[in-house]
Amino acid sequence: MTTAVQRLADTAAGKMADRIPVFCNLLDQGARELGLPLNEYYSRGEYVAEGQLRLQKKYGYDNVWCLFYVGKEAELFGCRKIIFAEDGPPNVGEMILETYDDVYRLQVPEDVTSHPAFEETRKCLDILKREVGGKRPICAYVTASMTLPAILMGMENWLALLLSGPLDVRDELLEKCSEFFRKQVAALRNAGADIILYSNPFGSVDFLPMRMFEMLSLPWMERDLKPVGADGVVYYCGGARLIPVIDRVIERTGIGAYYLSPLESVAAGKRAIEGRALCAGVINDIRMIDWSPQEVREEVKRILAEGMPGGRFMFGTVVMPWSIPDANIRAMLEAAFEFGRLQ
Protein backbone atom coordinates (compact mmCIF):
# COMPACT_ATOMS: atom_id res chain seq x y z
CA MET A 1 0.00 0.00 0.00
CA THR A 2 1.18 3.52 -0.80
CA THR A 3 2.11 5.57 2.26
CA ALA A 4 0.95 9.16 2.54
CA VAL A 5 4.57 10.33 2.28
CA GLN A 6 5.04 8.38 -0.95
CA ARG A 7 1.73 9.67 -2.30
CA LEU A 8 2.75 13.27 -1.66
CA ALA A 9 6.22 12.77 -3.14
CA ASP A 10 4.82 11.12 -6.27
CA THR A 11 2.18 13.80 -6.74
CA ALA A 12 4.70 16.61 -6.25
CA ALA A 13 6.97 14.98 -8.84
CA GLY A 14 4.12 14.78 -11.32
CA LYS A 15 3.86 10.99 -11.10
CA MET A 16 0.60 9.12 -10.77
CA ALA A 17 -0.32 8.00 -7.23
CA ASP A 18 -3.29 5.92 -5.99
CA ARG A 19 -5.18 9.11 -5.17
CA ILE A 20 -4.51 12.80 -4.62
CA PRO A 21 -2.98 13.78 -1.24
CA VAL A 22 -5.63 14.97 1.22
CA PHE A 23 -4.62 17.36 4.03
CA CYS A 24 -7.01 18.23 6.84
CA ASN A 25 -5.85 20.83 9.36
CA LEU A 26 -7.48 20.02 12.69
CA LEU A 27 -5.65 21.67 15.60
CA ASP A 28 -7.82 22.64 18.57
CA GLN A 29 -10.03 19.60 17.94
CA GLY A 30 -7.30 17.42 19.49
CA ALA A 31 -8.28 18.76 22.91
CA ARG A 32 -11.81 17.52 22.35
CA GLU A 33 -10.49 14.04 21.50
CA LEU A 34 -8.57 13.97 24.77
CA GLY A 35 -11.35 15.57 26.81
CA LEU A 36 -9.03 18.37 27.95
CA PRO A 37 -9.55 22.13 28.12
CA LEU A 38 -7.50 23.90 25.44
CA ASN A 39 -4.99 25.53 27.79
CA GLU A 40 -4.15 22.18 29.36
CA TYR A 41 -4.02 20.43 26.00
CA TYR A 42 -1.50 22.91 24.64
CA SER A 43 0.67 22.81 27.77
CA ARG A 44 2.30 19.51 26.81
CA GLY A 45 3.77 18.14 23.61
CA GLU A 46 2.59 14.64 24.55
CA TYR A 47 -1.03 15.79 24.52
CA VAL A 48 -0.76 17.53 21.16
CA ALA A 49 0.94 14.51 19.58
CA GLU A 50 -1.72 12.20 21.01
CA GLY A 51 -4.49 14.53 19.77
CA GLN A 52 -2.99 14.66 16.29
CA LEU A 53 -2.58 10.89 16.08
CA ARG A 54 -6.12 10.21 17.30
CA LEU A 55 -7.65 12.70 14.87
CA GLN A 56 -5.69 11.25 11.97
CA LYS A 57 -6.75 7.73 12.87
CA LYS A 58 -10.37 8.74 13.32
CA TYR A 59 -10.70 10.48 9.96
CA GLY A 60 -7.98 8.88 7.83
CA TYR A 61 -6.53 11.94 6.08
CA ASP A 62 -2.84 12.11 5.14
CA ASN A 63 -1.02 14.61 7.37
CA VAL A 64 -0.28 15.35 11.03
CA TRP A 65 0.81 18.66 12.63
CA CYS A 66 3.41 19.69 15.17
CA LEU A 67 1.89 23.21 15.23
CA PHE A 68 0.21 24.08 18.51
CA TYR A 69 -0.88 27.63 17.66
CA VAL A 70 0.79 30.47 15.78
CA GLY A 71 1.33 32.52 18.95
CA LYS A 72 3.99 30.00 19.99
CA GLU A 73 6.44 31.86 17.76
CA ALA A 74 5.88 34.99 19.83
CA GLU A 75 6.50 32.90 22.97
CA LEU A 76 9.84 31.74 21.54
CA PHE A 77 10.67 35.43 21.14
CA GLY A 78 9.80 36.21 24.77
CA CYS A 79 6.02 36.78 24.87
CA ARG A 80 4.59 35.52 28.18
CA LYS A 81 0.89 35.93 27.72
CA ILE A 82 -1.31 33.70 25.58
CA ILE A 83 -5.06 34.04 25.80
CA PHE A 84 -7.00 30.78 25.64
CA ALA A 85 -10.64 30.39 24.66
CA GLU A 86 -12.97 27.46 25.27
CA ASP A 87 -14.00 26.95 21.67
CA GLY A 88 -11.41 28.60 19.47
CA PRO A 89 -7.68 29.07 18.87
CA PRO A 90 -5.32 30.72 21.37
CA ASN A 91 -4.13 34.28 20.66
CA VAL A 92 -1.08 36.31 21.56
CA GLY A 93 -2.07 38.41 24.58
CA GLU A 94 0.82 40.87 24.76
CA MET A 95 2.93 42.59 22.14
CA ILE A 96 6.61 42.28 22.98
CA LEU A 97 7.54 45.27 20.80
CA GLU A 98 5.93 48.47 22.06
CA THR A 99 8.44 51.06 20.86
CA TYR A 100 10.97 51.26 18.05
CA ASP A 101 13.72 50.99 20.68
CA ASP A 102 12.31 47.58 21.59
CA VAL A 103 13.14 46.48 18.04
CA TYR A 104 16.81 47.16 18.70
CA ARG A 105 16.62 45.45 22.08
CA LEU A 106 14.90 42.37 20.66
CA GLN A 107 17.14 39.33 20.83
CA VAL A 108 16.87 36.41 18.48
CA PRO A 109 17.25 33.34 20.71
CA GLU A 110 20.77 31.96 20.30
CA ASP A 111 19.38 28.44 20.27
CA VAL A 112 15.62 28.14 19.73
CA THR A 113 15.70 24.47 20.69
CA SER A 114 16.67 25.25 24.28
CA HIS A 115 13.58 27.41 24.85
CA PRO A 116 10.90 25.76 27.05
CA ALA A 117 8.24 26.61 24.42
CA PHE A 118 10.19 24.69 21.79
CA GLU A 119 10.80 21.82 24.20
CA GLU A 120 7.09 20.88 24.05
CA THR A 121 7.11 21.06 20.23
CA ARG A 122 10.16 18.81 20.24
CA LYS A 123 8.42 16.27 22.50
CA CYS A 124 5.44 16.35 20.16
CA LEU A 125 7.69 15.80 17.14
CA ASP A 126 9.54 12.93 18.87
CA ILE A 127 6.27 11.08 19.32
CA LEU A 128 4.96 11.86 15.84
CA LYS A 129 8.25 10.74 14.32
CA ARG A 130 8.24 7.54 16.31
CA GLU A 131 4.62 6.72 15.45
CA VAL A 132 4.22 7.88 11.84
CA GLY A 133 7.62 9.19 10.72
CA GLY A 134 8.43 8.35 7.09
CA LYS A 135 4.83 7.28 6.55
CA ARG A 136 2.80 10.45 7.05
CA PRO A 137 3.91 13.98 6.20
CA ILE A 138 4.64 15.75 9.50
CA CYS A 139 3.74 19.41 9.02
CA ALA A 140 5.24 22.43 10.73
CA TYR A 141 4.14 26.04 10.45
CA VAL A 142 6.63 28.92 10.33
CA THR A 143 5.75 32.58 9.81
CA ALA A 144 7.72 34.52 7.19
CA SER A 145 9.92 37.45 8.23
CA MET A 146 7.57 39.88 6.44
CA THR A 147 4.59 38.68 8.51
CA LEU A 148 5.95 37.75 11.94
CA PRO A 149 6.07 41.38 13.20
CA ALA A 150 2.23 41.28 13.15
CA ILE A 151 2.26 39.21 16.34
CA LEU A 152 5.28 40.94 17.88
CA MET A 153 4.04 44.55 17.57
CA GLY A 154 0.46 44.16 16.28
CA MET A 155 -0.92 44.43 12.75
CA GLU A 156 -1.51 48.19 12.93
CA ASN A 157 1.96 49.06 14.13
CA TRP A 158 3.58 46.76 11.61
CA LEU A 159 1.60 48.25 8.73
CA ALA A 160 2.41 51.75 9.90
CA LEU A 161 6.12 50.90 10.16
CA LEU A 162 6.05 49.31 6.69
CA LEU A 163 4.22 52.17 5.03
CA SER A 164 5.69 55.22 6.67
CA GLY A 165 8.09 54.30 9.46
CA PRO A 166 11.88 54.65 9.69
CA LEU A 167 13.59 52.33 7.24
CA ASP A 168 16.40 51.38 9.61
CA VAL A 169 13.90 50.12 12.21
CA ARG A 170 11.97 48.21 9.56
CA ASP A 171 15.10 46.52 8.24
CA GLU A 172 16.48 45.75 11.69
CA LEU A 173 13.21 44.00 12.56
CA LEU A 174 13.00 42.12 9.26
CA GLU A 175 16.59 40.96 9.63
CA LYS A 176 15.87 39.60 13.12
CA CYS A 177 12.65 37.91 12.02
CA SER A 178 14.42 36.35 9.06
CA GLU A 179 17.23 35.01 11.22
CA PHE A 180 14.61 33.63 13.62
CA PHE A 181 12.76 32.04 10.70
CA ARG A 182 15.86 30.23 9.49
CA LYS A 183 16.70 29.00 12.98
CA GLN A 184 13.19 27.69 13.47
CA VAL A 185 13.16 25.87 10.15
CA ALA A 186 16.48 24.21 10.90
CA ALA A 187 15.32 23.19 14.39
CA LEU A 188 11.98 21.84 13.18
CA ARG A 189 13.50 19.85 10.34
CA ASN A 190 16.11 18.48 12.71
CA ALA A 191 13.39 17.34 15.07
CA GLY A 192 11.52 15.52 12.30
CA ALA A 193 9.24 17.94 10.42
CA ASP A 194 8.93 17.14 6.68
CA ILE A 195 6.68 19.94 5.48
CA ILE A 196 7.21 23.61 6.29
CA LEU A 197 4.10 25.68 5.76
CA TYR A 198 5.63 29.07 4.96
CA SER A 199 3.01 31.54 6.10
CA ASN A 200 3.18 34.99 4.56
CA PRO A 201 -0.01 37.08 4.26
CA PHE A 202 2.28 40.07 3.67
CA GLY A 203 3.47 38.25 0.57
CA SER A 204 0.02 38.58 -0.98
CA VAL A 205 -1.25 41.45 -3.11
CA ASP A 206 -4.37 41.45 -0.93
CA PHE A 207 -2.09 43.07 1.62
CA LEU A 208 0.49 45.12 -0.24
CA PRO A 209 0.61 46.71 -3.68
CA MET A 210 2.61 44.76 -6.28
CA ARG A 211 5.32 47.42 -6.13
CA MET A 212 5.93 46.75 -2.43
CA PHE A 213 5.65 43.01 -2.95
CA GLU A 214 8.50 43.26 -5.46
CA MET A 215 10.57 45.66 -3.38
CA LEU A 216 10.16 44.03 0.02
CA SER A 217 8.23 40.76 0.20
CA LEU A 218 10.18 38.96 -2.53
CA PRO A 219 13.70 39.91 -1.41
CA TRP A 220 12.87 38.95 2.19
CA MET A 221 11.41 35.65 1.06
CA GLU A 222 14.67 34.96 -0.72
CA ARG A 223 16.57 35.88 2.41
CA ASP A 224 14.38 33.56 4.53
CA LEU A 225 14.65 30.62 2.18
CA LYS A 226 17.96 30.67 0.31
CA PRO A 227 20.07 29.51 3.28
CA VAL A 228 17.64 26.77 4.38
CA GLY A 229 16.42 25.68 0.94
CA ALA A 230 12.88 25.30 -0.35
CA ASP A 231 12.69 21.56 0.25
CA GLY A 232 9.23 20.61 1.55
CA VAL A 233 8.24 24.28 1.72
CA VAL A 234 4.63 25.20 0.93
CA TYR A 235 3.68 28.80 0.13
CA TYR A 236 0.63 29.96 2.08
CA CYS A 237 -0.76 33.46 2.63
CA GLY A 238 -2.98 32.73 5.64
CA GLY A 239 -6.05 32.36 3.45
CA ALA A 240 -5.30 35.54 1.50
CA ARG A 241 -5.00 35.29 -2.29
CA LEU A 242 -1.72 34.35 -3.88
CA ILE A 243 -2.33 33.56 -7.57
CA PRO A 244 -1.08 36.97 -8.79
CA VAL A 245 2.36 36.34 -7.20
CA ILE A 246 2.85 32.64 -8.00
CA ASP A 247 4.95 33.31 -11.07
CA ARG A 248 7.35 35.61 -9.24
CA VAL A 249 7.62 33.31 -6.22
CA ILE A 250 8.46 30.29 -8.36
CA GLU A 251 11.07 32.28 -10.26
CA ARG A 252 12.77 33.80 -7.25
CA THR A 253 12.47 31.15 -4.51
CA GLY A 254 11.86 27.84 -6.22
CA ILE A 255 9.10 26.95 -3.73
CA GLY A 256 7.49 23.77 -5.07
CA ALA A 257 3.95 23.93 -3.61
CA TYR A 258 1.21 26.59 -3.47
CA TYR A 259 -1.69 26.54 -1.01
CA LEU A 260 -4.42 28.63 -2.63
CA SER A 261 -6.93 30.81 -0.81
CA PRO A 262 -10.38 29.22 -0.59
CA LEU A 263 -11.60 32.39 -2.28
CA GLU A 264 -9.51 31.74 -5.40
CA SER A 265 -10.39 29.77 -8.49
CA VAL A 266 -8.58 26.43 -8.47
CA ALA A 267 -8.48 26.36 -12.26
CA ALA A 268 -6.84 29.80 -12.31
CA GLY A 269 -4.30 28.60 -9.74
CA LYS A 270 -3.36 25.63 -11.90
CA ARG A 271 -3.01 27.89 -14.91
CA ALA A 272 -0.71 30.26 -13.02
CA ILE A 273 1.47 27.37 -11.85
CA GLU A 274 1.68 25.88 -15.36
CA GLY A 275 2.79 22.48 -14.12
CA ARG A 276 5.89 23.90 -12.42
CA ALA A 277 4.79 23.07 -8.86
CA LEU A 278 2.21 21.30 -6.72
CA CYS A 279 -1.12 23.09 -6.37
CA ALA A 280 -3.38 22.70 -3.30
CA GLY A 281 -7.08 23.36 -3.85
CA VAL A 282 -8.50 24.55 -0.54
CA ILE A 283 -12.06 24.30 0.76
CA ASN A 284 -13.74 27.30 2.41
CA ASP A 285 -13.92 25.55 5.78
CA ILE A 286 -15.61 28.49 7.52
CA ARG A 287 -18.70 27.69 5.48
CA MET A 288 -18.50 24.04 6.51
CA ILE A 289 -20.07 25.01 9.84
CA ASP A 290 -23.44 25.59 8.17
CA TRP A 291 -23.32 23.53 4.98
CA SER A 292 -25.12 20.17 4.90
CA PRO A 293 -22.97 17.06 4.32
CA GLN A 294 -24.38 16.98 0.78
CA GLU A 295 -23.26 20.57 0.14
CA VAL A 296 -19.81 19.77 1.49
CA ARG A 297 -19.62 16.80 -0.87
CA GLU A 298 -20.63 18.89 -3.87
CA GLU A 299 -18.02 21.51 -3.01
CA VAL A 300 -15.21 18.95 -2.73
CA LYS A 301 -16.30 17.46 -6.03
CA ARG A 302 -16.17 20.87 -7.68
CA ILE A 303 -12.70 21.68 -6.32
CA LEU A 304 -11.32 18.33 -7.45
CA ALA A 305 -12.89 18.56 -10.90
CA GLU A 306 -11.15 21.91 -11.38
CA GLY A 307 -7.82 20.88 -9.94
CA MET A 308 -7.17 17.28 -10.91
CA PRO A 309 -6.78 17.56 -14.68
CA GLY A 310 -3.07 17.69 -15.48
CA GLY A 311 -1.99 16.24 -12.09
CA ARG A 312 0.30 17.78 -9.45
CA PHE A 313 -2.75 18.56 -7.36
CA MET A 314 -3.81 18.00 -3.76
CA PHE A 315 -6.78 18.86 -1.57
CA GLY A 316 -6.61 20.80 1.70
CA THR A 317 -8.40 22.87 4.35
CA VAL A 318 -7.46 26.13 6.05
CA VAL A 319 -7.57 26.13 9.89
CA MET A 320 -10.74 24.13 10.50
CA PRO A 321 -12.96 26.02 12.98
CA TRP A 322 -13.93 24.22 16.19
CA SER A 323 -17.67 24.22 15.43
CA ILE A 324 -17.61 22.26 12.15
CA PRO A 325 -19.88 19.23 12.73
CA ASP A 326 -18.27 15.81 12.68
CA ALA A 327 -20.60 14.67 9.88
CA ASN A 328 -19.25 17.44 7.64
CA ILE A 329 -15.63 16.51 8.29
CA ARG A 330 -16.47 12.94 7.33
CA ALA A 331 -18.44 14.03 4.25
CA MET A 332 -15.52 16.18 3.11
CA LEU A 333 -12.98 13.39 3.45
CA GLU A 334 -15.17 10.69 1.95
CA ALA A 335 -15.70 12.89 -1.09
CA ALA A 336 -12.00 13.75 -1.35
CA PHE A 337 -11.01 10.07 -1.21
CA GLU A 338 -13.73 9.05 -3.65
CA PHE A 339 -13.39 11.77 -6.30
CA GLY A 340 -9.64 12.00 -5.76
CA ARG A 341 -9.00 8.37 -6.74
CA LEU A 342 -6.58 7.98 -9.63
CA GLN A 343 -6.03 4.28 -10.16
Binding site: E156, L159, L162, L163, V205, D206, F207, L208, P209, M212
Partner: peptide
Amino acid sequence: DTANLAQHFL
Protein backbone atom coordinates in the same frame (compact mmCIF):
# COMPACT_ATOMS: atom_id res chain seq x y z
CA ASP B 1 -11.42 43.95 -6.64
CA THR B 2 -7.82 45.12 -6.51
CA ALA B 3 -7.50 47.46 -3.55
CA ASN B 4 -5.25 46.00 -0.89
CA LEU B 5 -4.99 46.29 2.87
CA ALA B 6 -2.27 48.96 2.68
CA GLN B 7 -4.55 51.20 0.62
CA HIS B 8 -7.53 50.70 2.93
CA PHE B 9 -5.37 51.41 5.93
CA LEU B 10 -3.98 54.63 4.50
